[in-house]
Amino acid sequence: MGKLRLVASQEVQEMLGVSRTRAYQITNSKTFPDPVAVLSVGRIWRTEDVERWIKDHRPDLHDPAQ
């Protein structure tokens, strides 16, 4: 089993290359993966889930080399 990789809102914002407000809108959309946890620092997602969402919904941001 691989290492569990997690991201918070700030990392999602950076992965998408959008503002904090836009990242909030995207992460609240019905198509965005559900967070795996909600902590005092905010919502947490599995990196793989976010990367898959970017590949499916924002192919212009998907880098197959990564």
Rank of each mutant, 00 (worst) to 15 (best):
G2W: 05
G2Y: 06
K3W: 07
L4Q: 11
R5A: 06
Q10Y: 05
Q10V: 08
E11L: 06
E11G: 02
E11D: 02
E11A: 11
E11V: 08
V12F: 05
V12Y: 06
Q13M: 12
M15A: 10
G17T: 03
V18M: 03
S19K: 05
R20W: 12
T21C: 02
T21R: 15
T21Q: 14
R22M: 07
A23R: 12
A23Q: 08
Y24E: 03
Y24P: 00
Y24V: 01
Y24A: 07
Q25G: 01
Q25C: 01
I26P: 01
T27K: 14
S29R: 03
S29K: 01
K30F: 01
T31R: 12
D34K: 15
D34L: 11
V36A: 00
A37T: 05
V38K: 15
V38I: 12
L39F: 07
L39M: 13
S40Y: 08
V41A: 06
V41Q: 07
V41H: 09
W45L: 13
W45Y: 11
R46V: 08
T47Y: 13
T47R: 15
T47N: 06
E48G: 04
V50D: 02
E51Q: 14
I54C: 11
I54A: 11
K55H: 07
D56V: 03
D56F: 01
D56L: 14
H62T: 06
A65Y: 07
Q66T: 15
Q66E: 11
